[in-house]
Simulated scan of single mutants.
Amino acid sequence: MPLHYEVIDPLTIPVTEFNENHIAVLHVVGNRYSGQWKIDVLSQQERSGEAAALGTIEAFHDHQRDDLTDSPRYPQLGLDTAIIWLLTETKEKGWRLLLWEDASDKVPEDARKFTIGARVALGGDQFVPTPGVVYADEVLSTTKV
């Protein structure tokens, strides 16, 4: 069950993010302020000493469910929402979501309630799938996120 979300900055990935195989490896980082998540897709390439945001959403719960933010599952709902957003964006752009890897375990335990992370690989519009390989967008679109 993803959260409601609003696109703040549409996902825009420059050609320079994609390697010679038309794959871009990016980070998803979310920070929670009260009950609202700000979730960015970040470049791995540093510009001016920090990673560039390539797209941003804000995700929030139904305000009739204030108890939801206290749930240990609330950070996972933020990640679920990021997956739905990326699946939608990649499909619209003719790209592929090749890999989704939860990286929240790399966040210090006391901060996990307020910080989420993942690593993703996207195949651009010229990406050629390897026969027989099942990619994240195929798995995630057939399961409930």
Rank of each mutant, 00 (worst) to 15 (best):
K91S: 12
L77N: 02
K91P: 06
P75I: 13
I83Q: 05
I116T: 14
P75W: 05
F114R: 12
E89L: 01
R73W: 09
D80G: 09
G124S: 07
L79I: 12
A121E: 11
L86Q: 11
L87K: 02
I83T: 12
A82D: 11
K106V: 07
P75N: 15
A82T: 02
E101A: 03
Q76V: 15
A111Y: 14
G94A: 08
L122G: 11
A118I: 13
I116S: 09
L79K: 10
T81M: 06
G117E: 12
A121S: 15
I83K: 02
T88I: 00
T115Q: 09
D102N: 15
R119G: 14
I116L: 13
T115A: 06
E101W: 06
Y74D: 02
E92N: 01
G78R: 06
R73D: 07
I83R: 10
V120A: 10
F114V: 14
R73C: 00
L99H: 01
G117T: 08
L122A: 08
E89K: 11
W85S: 07
R119F: 05
L77V: 06
R119C: 09
D102L: 02
A82W: 02
A111N: 14
L122I: 15
A111K: 15
P72L: 08
L87Y: 07
A121R: 12
R119P: 03
R73N: 07
R96D: 05
D102K: 03
G78H: 12
E109M: 06
D110L: 02
L77Q: 04
V107G: 08
G78A: 14
A111E: 13
L77T: 03
G94C: 03
T115Y: 12
W100R: 08
E101D: 00
G78Y: 08
G94D: 10
V120N: 08
R96I: 08
D80E: 15
G123V: 11
G78D: 12
L77M: 13
D105C: 09
K106S: 08
Q76G: 09
E92D: 11
T88Q: 10
E101L: 07
A111I: 05
R73A: 14
W85N: 10
D80A: 13
E89P: 01
E101I: 04
E101H: 00
P108M: 14
K93Q: 04
L77G: 01
G123T: 09
V120K: 04
S104H: 01
F114S: 13
E101Q: 09
L77P: 00
T90Q: 03
